[in-house]
Design a protein around this nucleic acid. Structure first.
Lengths: 218, 218
DNA sequence: ATAATAAGCGAACATGCGTTCTATGTCAAG
DNA sequence: CTTGACATAGAACGCATGTTCGCTTATTAT
């Protein structure tokens, strides 16, 4: 950033700014010139126009010319819906069965959803969440009740933490996955450095999703 | 909740809804009837009015009669700034020294901040975050690099997970804290159920904050 | 003091924009 | 076939609303 900012705003200009902000909080719609006039105690519409022009120059708001209610605060603390993503909690993950994967049909019902800031997870594509049940993932440092944010994906990079279902043992687990050179085996490495990695036949491992983030509410 | 919701919306109604939503994302101002008409491919303004009325009945949006751009989605996915809290990451927590606590003067600079949905943490009061360094908290199932969201608080309820600095050992740790009946000792219980709790003299334990939530990005 | 510049007014104007009205088309029930 | 509830068009009406312009009143510089 460089110039701009609050090089002294005149007092009516501050009133206008504050009025717009409050008005938006209440109505979700920007005010009209005349509403600003009354609300901020300005004597005429032309004066409002005048001040608005100044505020625009100061980069404190944007105007859409000639459009009704065409004033929007640039004020950074506006948050767009995209900044929060609602991730559906599609089920529980337990050691003894495959982890559920999202049902494409099921619309996210608000009940079973966790909100997280987009900045934590990057893209919202293919995200879903699982609630961990039982202590069996403790070797991945994941506790009973933790929420695991997963991304549905077919390709896993070496070293990604993923939910893997082992068909031969009938067991779900969260491990870091490495493809062995021969392409036939996977190395599964527990997060807990005190535990040894082990190997499974690639045919017996279904990779169900990639762990993006783990959240524990206490 | 009871009635309402998406009792079959007609296809043009869905288009309208989606258009408004996208329009708002882009412009921060609701569209006019005529903009909806073009944007959602409706044949006439009266039809837009017509559908809008239906959508209002279905509680999917509110209208301010006779006011320009007087349509606002009720749809919960509107996000107010209050729904995201920016938590300052005030430092690292390592076993060998007291965990940092927030400096009341220091303003949150955007660089060292983690955004989380308000629904995860309740009130934003007194929140700060620590980045865990080292494996020493592994008994609390907290890994190197994890982010711990803390709340500055003086009173801790029995069983709360808290950051405790043990003055006699010069060591920081995250444990569940229980006050013993005699009031002189604290029981500190690791999260990991395979580890045994232990007791410390209350005078040698500084409770630095309460763990609200743990976040692990992978 | 005088000129120049910024600030303040209010009315008039031209669209912007929501509403309403009439006419037409559809489709199922009677 | 008729009736009546809906869905659809298009246009006209009229208030809402941003803009402009001429004019007066501070402020400040010369």
């Amino acid at each position: 950033m460089s110039h701009s900012a609050i090089e002294h705003l005149t007092e009516p200009q501050q009133r206008i700014l504050s009025f717009i902000s409050h008005y938006m909080d209440e109505h979700d719609v920007p005010p009209t010139i005349r509403e600003i006039q009354k609300g901020a105690g300005i004597s005429s519409t032309s004066m409002v126009s005048y001040h608005l022009k100044a505020l625009e120059r100061a980069n404190l708001l944007n105007r859409y010319e000639r459009r009704s209610r065409g004033v929007v605060l640039t004020h950074a603390h506006r948050v767009s819906p995209r900044d929060i993503v609602s991730v559906p909690i599609v089920g529980r993950i337990v050691a003894s069965e495959p982890a559920p994967t999202p049902d494409p049909d099921a619309l996210a019902d608000a009940e079973n959803t966790i909100q997280i800031a987009r900045s934590l997870v990057g893209s919202a594509d293919g995200l879903y969440a699982l609630e961990v049940q039982g202590d069996s993932m403790i070797d991945a440092l994941i506790n009973d009740g933790d929420i695991v944010i997963m991304r549905r994906t077919d390709e896993i990079k070496n070293g990604d933490l993923a939910a893997v279902f082992l068909t031969d043992r009938n067991e779900s687990t969260l491990k870091r996955v490495y493809r062995e050179k021969d392409g036939k085996r996977l190395k599964l490495k527990p997060e807990n450095p005190t535990m040894k990695p082990f190997y499974v036949d690639a045919h017996h491992a279904m990779i169900q999703g990639k762990v993006i983030c783990v959240i524990r509410k206490t």
